[in-house]
Amino acid sequence: MSQETDEIREAIAGELRLMDPSVRMSRSLARELLDPAFVEVGASGRRWTYDEMLATLPELDGGAENGPRYESSNFEGVLLAPGLVHLTFESMMDGHRARRSSLWRKQGAPATWQMYYHQATPIPLDSV
């Protein structure tokens, strides 16, 4: 694992918050964590913009309090530059695994960490 800095810990905390159903169900809470220039390439291959993600997030997997939840593991982070963190990790949801990569940047006044980019790549069941 990479050497964890406060910046990396804060980015991981933001990532975990975005997996929390109460945040996924709340556009206002999700808005705090997503950069206005946010883009995602999901495990399906679909490209999502900031507005599309905010509009759809409550209906996506992991958005129901009583439904399946994301389980994450193997977080690694790298501070690429002041205010820019790259995270990689694995997730499991309802039997589906994915390798994930995200960029978090800290900006604005007051400066807050927000996800700028996210990509998920499915892991085949027979893969290690």
Rank of each mutant, 00 (worst) to 15 (best):
L29S: 14
E90W: 07
A13E: 13
W48G: 03
E52N: 07
S72K: 05
D61F: 03
A55K: 07
L87T: 00
L57K: 00
S127I: 00
G63M: 03
L125G: 14
P36T: 11
I12L: 07
A98I: 07
K106V: 03
A13G: 06
Y116I: 00
S44L: 14
A37L: 08
P124F: 08
G95K: 00
T88C: 08
F38S: 02
R17T: 05
T5Q: 10
W104Q: 11
E71C: 05
N74C: 14
L54F: 00
G108Q: 12
E71N: 06
G108W: 05
D51P: 05
S101R: 08
F89D: 05
A64L: 08
L34R: 02
G108A: 12
M25F: 13
S127T: 13
I12Y: 03
P58R: 03
L103F: 02
E4C: 02
E90Y: 14
R99A: 13
E65T: 13
Q107I: 01
G77Y: 01
R31D: 15
S28D: 13
W104Y: 10
T88Q: 12
S73A: 15
L54Y: 01
L18V: 05
T112M: 11
R105F: 12
L57Y: 04
A55D: 12
D94T: 02
V39M: 06
A81H: 12
S102I: 00
T49A: 04
A55N: 06
F38Q: 04
K106R: 15
Y116L: 14
E40L: 01
A13P: 05
I8V: 15
S127E: 14
V85I: 13
Q114Y: 00
M53F: 05
Q119G: 03
E59Y: 08
E10K: 15
G45F: 12
V39G: 00
Y117H: 11
D51C: 08
Q114S: 09
E76V: 14
A120C: 02
L60F: 02
H96R: 13
S26H: 04
A11P: 11
